[in-house]
């Protein structure tokens, strides 16, 4: 699996405030990259830029050596992004939620794959309960089970540990590291301490608010 996400002199200005400037990144397969920084330092914005959602940045962004703007489609096919909000419909059951994501992302395996993914995240028996009746942690697990559903090389996860119990956190952490070991790449923000590992690297976004 080749994958390489590079940023050169990345800078982001939002409403006349520079969130970060002159950021150089070179992220490849086999890495778990943790983006660190205080509140308001632009972690979420950086993840949104690196996941191709925000086109409003200065500098260059390359996906496998090609400018992101030109290969957006290919890039999105290899990306799995989980944001602050879980993206789970409360009126639908976990299974229906996953089926939609499967169809949207072109995942294979049909219903069996969805059930297996839900099972992996401890949701066996809850497949057909409307997601609105699940707890916040369980809803988060529904979103996270997409990690098992479709094999995407690049995972961009914004605070994925929110509302997850202790066992779940450990399992998820192991899953992130396993993904990197298989050649995938994980970009993650979290306030939870990740256990030291040879695949773990950090990017510090620092100074917070700064005038232009």
């Amino acid at each position: 699996m080749t994958l390489r996400l590079q940023a050169r002199k990345l800078a982001c200005e939002r409403d006349d405030r520079w969130l970060f400037e002159d950021l150089d990144l070179d992220i490849g397969g086999g890495e778990v990259v943790r983006v660190e920084g205080p509140n308001g330092s632009g972690k979420t914005t950086l993840l949104k830029i690196l996941s191709g959602q925000l086109a409003d940045y200065h500098g260059e962004l390359l996906w496998n050596g090609e400018p992101m703007r030109d290969v957006r489609q290919v890039f999105l096919e290899g990306l799995l992004y989980l944001g602050h909000a879980p993206g789970v419909k409360v009126t639908l059951t976990p299974l229906e939620n996953l089926r939609w994501y499967q169809a949207l992302g072109g995942g294979a395996g049909g219903e069996q794959a969805c059930l297996a993914a839900l099972d992996e995240f401890g949701l066996a028996g809850f497949e057909d309960v409307p997601a609105g009746q699940l707890s916040a942690g369980q809803q988060r697990r529904v979103a996270l089970s997409r990690l098992a559903l479709s094999p995407r090389p690049l995972w961009v996860l914004d605070e994925p540990f929110t509302a997850i119990d202790r066992d779940g956190v450990a399992a998820l952490e192991a899953r992130l590291i396993a993904h990197a070991r298989q050649g995938g790449c994980v970009l993650v923000t979290t306030h939870h301490e990740l256990a030291a590992s040879d695949v773990l690297t950090c990017i510090a976004l620092g100074q917070g608010a700064r005038d232009a």
Binding site: S51, G52, Q53, Q73, L76, E77, L79, Y81, G83, H84, A85, P86, G87, V88, K89, V90, Y101, L104, G105, G106
Partner: peptide
């Protein structure tokens, strides 16, 4: 609920 974000990221 964040699914709009996901819709935008669909290939």
């Amino acid at each position: 609920d964040g699914s709009l974000e996901q819709l935008l990221l669909a290939p």
